[in-house]
Every structure is written in structure tokens, then in C-alpha cells.
């Protein structure tokens, strides 16, 4: 794991040969990429929950008996009438749906959005940590490469 003792980590990094460092760099890039995707997904999920909440909130007495368009598919709608503004059915996951009052459903979506927000924050923190170690790694690679170049030049000079 990357959460090993930072001191031993830096020492071992400096002792590593360049090809291995490059491998490590690729690994870091992949990890950061994956985490960034996860972060965007979290943000999207959060937006979905917020949208659900605003939909639930529009189930007011004012809108009772109003005509709405119900989507049967993504592109096919049929007219319907809002006949129940008290309860909705909420997706609880793994195929189960639970009937809830409108107020409970709004609370449910708030809790969900908050939960996802917490996860997104954790991911962001991990990304920042990884990026810091990544920058450190890049510095070491740079240092090693210049060192190697200098050695080569010295060897060339010596052989002449």
C-alpha cells in the first residue's frame, strides 16, 4: 500500500533503478486516472440524487390533479394525471423499491447526496495525496536522469 512509512518509502525510491521508477510512475498515473473517474462518478451520482429530491419536492398540493407526461421509454411519453402527492416509491438498490412518504423520500435523497459527497471528499483527498507523491517521484526520476547523463559524459570524456 502507498500508506507505508513515508521515510522508508523515499529511501527505497532513491535506491530504485530508473526502469522501475518509470514503472512506478505509470502505476501512479493509472491510479490517479482511476480515482479521478471515480470522483466524477460520485459527482454525477450526487447530481442525480439532488434532481430526484427536487422532483419529489414538486409533488405539492398545487400540482395535484395536473396533467403530466409520463415517459414510457426515453422517447415515448403518454399523458397522465398526478393523483397521489403523498407517497412515492424509492429505489433502495439491488432491485428493491420501498414506498415512502414525500417528506421521507426528500430526506432519503438528502442523506444519499450527503453520503456520496462524503465519499467524493475522501476520493479527492486521496487524489491530492497521490499527486504529491507523484510529484516527488517525478523529481527523483529527473534527478536520476541528469545524474546518469553526467556519468555518461564523464565516461566519454575519460575514454577519449
Amino acid at each position: 500500500m502507498a500508506t507505508a512509512n513515508p521515510k522508508t518509502q523515499t529511501i527505497s525510491l532513491e535506491d530504485m533503478p530508473l526502469p522501475q521508477l518509470h514503472k512506478l510512475k505509470a502505476q501512479f498515473e493509472e491510479e490517479i486516472g482511476e480515482l479521478t473517474t471515480a470522483f466524477t462518478q460520485m459527482k454525477q451520482a450526487q447530481a442525480t440524487f439532488r434532481e430526484c429530491k427536487s422532483c419529489v419536492e414538486s409533488m405539492t398540493a398545487d400540482n395535484m390533479d395536473k396533467t403530466i407526461m409520463v415517459p414510457l421509454t426515453n422517447s415515448l411519453y403518454v399523458p397522465g394525471k398526478l393523483s397521489n402527492i403523498d407517497s412515492v416509491v424509492v429505489d433502495a438498490g439491488t432491485g428493491y423499491y420501498i414506498e415512502k412518504s414525500v417528506g421521507d423520500a426528500a430526506q432519503y435523497y438528502d442523506a444519499k447526496a450527503e453520503f456520496v459527497q462524503g465519499n467524493a471528499k475522501k476520493i479527492q483527498e486521496t487524489i491530492e495525496q497521490k499527486q504529491t507523491s507523484f510529484r516527488g517521484l517525478l523529481e527523483i526520476i529527473q534527478f536520476k536522469m541528469t545524474q546518469q547523463q553526467r556519468q555518461q559524459q564523464q565516461q566519454q570524456a575519460a575514454s577519449k
Binding site: 428493491y96 423499491y97 421521507d104
Partner: peptide, 9 residues
């Protein structure tokens, strides 16, 4: 809640 109904997709 105790009176809530549960559905399965």
C-alpha cells in the same frame, strides 16, 4: 416504517 410497502423490480 412498519406500514411501508416493498416492491421488487
Amino acid at each position: 416504517k412498519d406500514d411501508a410497502r416493498v416492491y421488487k423490480l
